[in-house]
Amino acid sequence: MHEMSLMAEMIELLGCSARENNIDKIIKVHLVVGKMTMALPDALTMAFDVFKTEDIFAPSAELTIEQRETIAKCRTCGSTFSAPDNYLFICPTCQGLRIEIISGRELYIASFEGEEA
């Protein structure tokens, strides 16, 4: 549900950076999204299609989303493991419950490409 406001924020950030880099029309955007952000790629893509009509984008502009898995690290024994889909974090090595998330919360624009003004 928050994908629309995340996309609006992405458009703002891209607009600023495009101006700084003398880019007229953006043609590609590469976004990294961790699974634990609950931002759904389909909903992000749909929101992108709405915003794509803005001046800073070429009509053929494309959004690529790289999804990152949720990875946890056990604070007791230090081993790392993929989070199960239900997010019930139990260390498979020592059955410890005190864990930290080391991947899966990413939400950033990795890079973009555009035509020089």
Binding site: M10, L13, L107, Y108, I109, A110, E113, E115
Partner: peptide
């Protein structure tokens, strides 16, 4: 000419 920008900016940066 095509320009590629490595950005690395979080969508939540301004909120933070």
């Amino acid at each position: 000419m095509t320009i590629r920008v490595e950005l690395g900016t979080s969508l939540l940066a301004r909120n933070e």
